[in-house]
Each structure stands twice: as structure tokens, then as C-alpha cells.
């Protein structure tokens, strides 16, 4: 799903870049300036985990590639806004150090996977928390829905950007991307549910909003880092 340089119209690249920058800016403000000894390793390990997961890449007809996203897992552990920041960081590292995803297309990639994927998954998880009882089944169920939906929403945003740029007609890229990502999303849902189940079984305190767990974005009495 990483859009390389050259596939986007400069106007689309600039517009998506502005949208992504403002969303990540809000995410940074919501996370606050401080990470403490509980949140710093969680943020770092989640980032590294998403980074590793996204390296499993395969091409999709019509101009781009597909891979596991990790957005729903990040949102379930960190909450939507911090997940959005972590995904943006991962995508930036991939663009600058591994040449994966274009530097000029970074805004679009952050918008698709970090903002649309991360915040979308976060909204679904938050809705599930409000509407359903706080049980293991409900968390894993909404986790699966959030994982599949995040992948599909990201693929949809990616297709629209490629279509609007005129690189490939929307009518071609949209079914190709959504078709492949319906399958990738199912794989993502299985992995997200398994990972969430394991975390819930041994470290339920790491899950954002689970029975009153303090989120990463909430104030903590002892900020150690970056304050």
C-alpha cells in the first residue's frame, strides 16, 4: 500500500501532505510531550512490531503493493492518536532509510495508513468499548472488525488518490485494491486477534481503555522522558 514517488499528482501529494501533517500534529499534542517508563517501551515495541509486520510486501495490479498494516493493533494498545503518531513515524523511517514508499508521497502514505487506518480502527474500537460489555469476546470481536476495516479504508483512500492523480483509472485500481485487501484484511484480523488475545491473557494493563487502564495520552504523575 506504500505509494512510491511518481505515482501521485503534485497537487494530490501536497493536499494529502497537509492533511496528514495536521492530523499527526493533533496526535502529537494529544499524546503530550512526555513518555514515562510504562509508555516508552510500549510505544517503541509497538512501532518496531508494526515496522516488521509491514515488511511483508507483495504487489497489487494497478500500481501499488499490499501488506499487513498493524494499525488496529497499534490503536488497541496505544489509543487512536498515539497510534497515528507511531504509524507516521514508522512510515517516515521506511521512506527515508529503506526507500519504501516515496518521500514526496509520504503525506499520502501517512494519511492512508496512519490517519485513515489508525484513527479509523481507533474509532471502531472506541465505539465497541462504549456499546458492548468489557469482555474478552467483545474486545477480540471489535479488534477483528477494526483490523479488517482499517485495511479496507486505507486501500480505499489509496485507490482514490491514485485515481484522482490520473495515474490509473479509479475503475481499475479500486476493485483490484479492495479485492486483494479484503483478503489481506482477513489475515490482518486473525493476527490482530491472536496478538490482542495473548496480550489480554498476560498483560491486560497494556490494552488502551481496558477496564480503566490509563491510556498513553493520559496524564501520568512521573513524566521521565522528553518533558
Amino acid at each position: 500500500m506504500h505509494i512510491p514517488d511518481g505515482f501521485l499528482d503534485p497537487g494530490v501529494a501536497a493536499a494529502t501532505g497537509a492533511l496528514a501533517a495536521s492530523a499527526v500534529g493533533i496526535g502529537l499534542r494529544r499524546t503530550g510531550t512526555a513518555l514515562d517508563e510504562r509508555t516508552a517501551p510500549l510505544v517503541g515495541v509497538t512501532g518496531a512490531f508494526v515496522f516488521a509486520a509491514q515488511m511483508l510486501n507483495f504487489p497489487v495490479a494497478g500500481g501499488t503493493s499490499g501488506h499487513v498494516l498493524g494499525a488496529a493493533l497499534a490503536a488497541a494498545l496505544l489509543g487512536p492518536w498515539t497510534a497515528c503518531v507511531v504509524l507516521a513515524v514508522v512510515l517516515t523511517l521506511q521512506a527515508f532509510v529503506f526507500a519504501d514508499g516515496g518521500v514526496a508521497a509520504l503525506g499520502a502514505n501517512v494519511l492512508n495508513m496512519g490517519v485513515v487506518g489508525g484513527l479509523g480502527a481507533g474509532l471502531i474500537l472506541a465505539a465497541g468499548r462504549r456499546a458492548l460489555p468489557q469482555t474478552r469476546g467483545a474486545l477480540l470481536g471489535t479488534g477483528a472488525v477494526a483490523a479488517w476495516s482499517a485495511v479496507m479504508l486505507s486501500a480505499l483512500a489509496c485507490s482514490i488518490e491514485l485515481g484522482v492523480s490520473g495515474t490509473v483509472p479509479l475503475a481499475t485500481v479500486l476493485p483490484a485494491m479492495l479485492g486483494v485487501h479484503a483478503l489481506i484484511g482477513a489475515g490482518e484480523a486473525v493476527i490482530t486477534v491472536a496478538a490482542l488475545g495473548a496480550v489480554l491473557a498476560s498483560r491486560p494493563d497494556l490494552i488502551h481503555g481496558w477496564r480503566g487502564t490509563p491510556g498513553v495520552a493520559s496524564a501520568h504523575p512521573r513524566p521521565v522522558l522528553g518533558g
Binding site: A40, P41, G44, G47, V86, T92
Partner: peptide, 12 residues
């Protein structure tokens, strides 16, 4: 914070 998250991600 962005740089800090990048640093931690790289370490981990």
C-alpha cells in the same frame, strides 16, 4: 516527541 518515538522504534 516524533524524534523520540523514531528513536525508540529503531532501538526496539
Amino acid at each position: 516527541l516524533f524524534v523520540l518515538v523514531a528513536m525508540l522504534t529503531y532501538r526496539y
